[in-house]
Amino acid sequence: MTKVKICGLTTKAAVDTAVKYGADYLGFVFARSHRQILPAKVKRLTDQLPKKIKKVGVFVSPSLQELEAVIKIADLDLVQIHGTPLQEKASVPMIQALPGKSNQHYQVTAPYQYLLLDAPPKKYMGGSGETFDWHAVKKADLPKDNLWIAGGLDIQNVRAAIDYFSPETVDVSSGVETQQKKDLDKIMHFIQIVKGK
């Protein structure tokens, strides 16, 4: 079954809703964004988190030192890297975020364990709320395992994204927001649609 990451979380209510309805990953943005959060707050928001739910830190062009400091404070399980790829291996599994576009062969390469296809950046990396042209990406050029899909997903299009890409995980942020704030009903419905409930 496809896994779900609810990203850009900043409140206890949104975290609790994602957990209640079966999110597999919770995403926290440490890069510049209106969703940016401090590592210590992530630790507070997730101190009762079930072990099976994993915390993902989202970064743009970080140094390994910066990454490891946040991993330790926020107690992260994975890190998602946008922008300049990090060449060193972190202490937790790594997700490489790349824009979905044509004429590019995608593969999971060390030190990364996962590949995330996202919309091309606008003001900030990731989280633009827009989809990329799925059909411009040749499915044959994508890894068969460890593929995550993001970029403008919402309750209207996530099933189509799953049918097209067969990803391991779908990743949503703006698609479960109303006026740039997490919408608890949208979080619930998004997870239910993905999980087929």
Rank of each mutant, 00 (worst) to 15 (best):
M1P: 04
V19N: 11
D24H: 13
V29G: 07
A31K: 00
A31P: 00
A31N: 00
S33I: 10
I37Q: 02
L38W: 00
P39S: 12
A40W: 08
A40V: 12
K41N: 05
R44F: 10
L45G: 01
T46H: 01
Q48L: 14
L49V: 12
P50L: 11
K52H: 13
K54D: 11
V56I: 09
F59I: 13
F59V: 09
V60H: 01
E66W: 03
K72T: 15
A74H: 09
A74V: 12
A74F: 12
L78V: 07
L86W: 03
V92N: 06
M94A: 06
M94H: 07
I95V: 15
G100F: 11
N103R: 12
Q104K: 13
Q104I: 14
Y106H: 06
Q107G: 04
V108E: 02
V108T: 07
A110E: 12
Q113I: 13
Y114R: 10
L116H: 02
D118P: 08
P120F: 11
K122G: 06
S128W: 00
S128K: 02
T131I: 14
A136N: 03
K138T: 01
K139N: 08
A140K: 14
D141S: 11
I149K: 05
A150W: 04
L153H: 04
A160T: 06
A161R: 03
F165H: 04
E168M: 14
E168W: 06
T169F: 05
V170A: 05
V172A: 08
V172R: 01
S173H: 03
S173L: 10
E177Q: 09
K181V: 02
K181I: 00
D183S: 04
I191R: 08
K197E: 15
